[in-house]
């Protein structure tokens, strides 16, 4: 990419670094392939949900229990966090480490409030008598939504680790690559949530 071309201008002194950056590019591609496999994972869970869509086994239905206000709040929170992780990338491209860490912290806090809302929702649902063992529908629901929530939670720990690394090592080709893959992961989780929001919640309450 352009970064590599820049190193070329510096001459042969940076040959080693050049090879290193190409290696980092390859790792970003590897991460893309991981995201695609993750896409297939969510695809199978969506398929399960579609199959179990009317299997309530006499228990509560989604339309009865879903509370849209909380879900709408989660949607906008995750959407904004996807944007702020993009702003983190812009700060990184300008070489501003402090600004980068700042946007990562904002993104992590938004992610944390998303998880908080999701846990609150699950607790509410269980109190209303919809546990993972209630019916095929609720099993599929908790597996699908819970897998996404688990991804976001893992992303939060990963973000924390990268913030610590950025504090210690600053911007190197390696930390740059890590921030790049993290932001790809975060955008991907937002995309999955959009489909969750549409298929599970919006279509669920109709």
């Amino acid at each position: 990419m352009q970064q590599v071309a820049k190193n070329h201008e510096h001459g042969h002194a940076h040959d080693h670094e050049h090879g290193h950056e190409e290696h980092e590019q390859l790792k970003v591609l590897g991460f893309w392939i991981f995201l695609v496999t993750d896409c297939i994972l969510f695809g199978t869970l969506f398929a399960t949900y579609a199959v179990m869509n009317h299997s309530f086994a006499g228990g509560p239905t989604g339309a009865e229990l879903f509370a849209l206000p909380g879900v709408i709040a989660s949607t906008f929170i995750l959407l904004t966090s996807s944007f702020t992780s993009g702003l983190a990338i812009l700060a990184m491209n300008k070489g501003k480490v402090k600004e980068l860490i700042g946007w990562l912290i904002v993104t992590a806090l938004l992610g944390l409030s998303f998880i908080y809302l999701e846990v609150t929702e699950f607790i509410h649902l269980v109190h209303e008598g919809a546990t993972i063992a209630t019916s095929g529908f609720w099993s599929a629901f908790y597996t699908l939504v819970g897998t996404h929530g688990l991804h976001v939670s893992i992303g939060l720990f990963w973000m924390l680790a990268i913030i610590i690394q950025l504090r210690r090592r600053g911007l190197t080709p390696v930390t740059r690559r890590k921030v790049t893959t993290l932001s790809l992961y975060w955008h991907f989780l937002d995309v999955v949530w959009i489909f969750l929001f549409t298929v599970v919640y919006l279509m669920g309450v109709m």
């Binding site: 990419m1 959407l79 996807s82 944007f83 993009g86 702003l87 990338i89 812009l90 491209n93 929001f197």
Partner: peptide, 22 residues
């Protein structure tokens, strides 16, 4: 300076479009 990953403008447009589409 915007090495490869877009500009503030493209992120803001993307964000606004996402909000509208939600």
């Amino acid at each position: 300076h915007a090495e490869s990953h877009g500009s503030l403008k493209s992120y803001v447009i993307g964000f606004i479009l996402s909000i509208v589409l939600t």
